[in-house]
Amino acid sequence: MCLAIPGKIVELLPEDRSLAVVEVLGVRRKVDLGLLQEEPPVTGDWVLIHVGFAMSKIGEEDALQQLRMLTELGESDAAVEEVRGYGLGDSEGQGSRAGPGEENTPCDLSTNFANPN
């Protein structure tokens, strides 16, 4: 149920608004955008593709945030404090990815800071 791959929309098809050409590492296929009609993607957007349908838009900011947090794992407390000061807030754009009551930063840096091991 789970093979879904990120691909970039390189062309929207004029004759059928629900179809787009998506590219994955130079391989192109027509993908159905029918499940994303509430917020249709545009050329240049990245989408998650499963069985020829786009399932969701991929949030670049969310991805970058995740990578930043992982990069910070294991760094010194000072570095951790500095990063918290940047205020990496909630992600915007594709609707909230954080649930009510859920930390905006899924890896709570404060835990790391409070309980250094």
Binding site: I5, E23, V24, L25, G26, V27, R29, I49
Partner: peptide, 12 residues
């Protein structure tokens, strides 16, 4: 090549 990787990823 990238394209071979891409096709393999798409098709599993």
């Amino acid at each position: 090549r990238d394209e071979v990787r891409g096709a393999c990823e798409l098709l599993g």
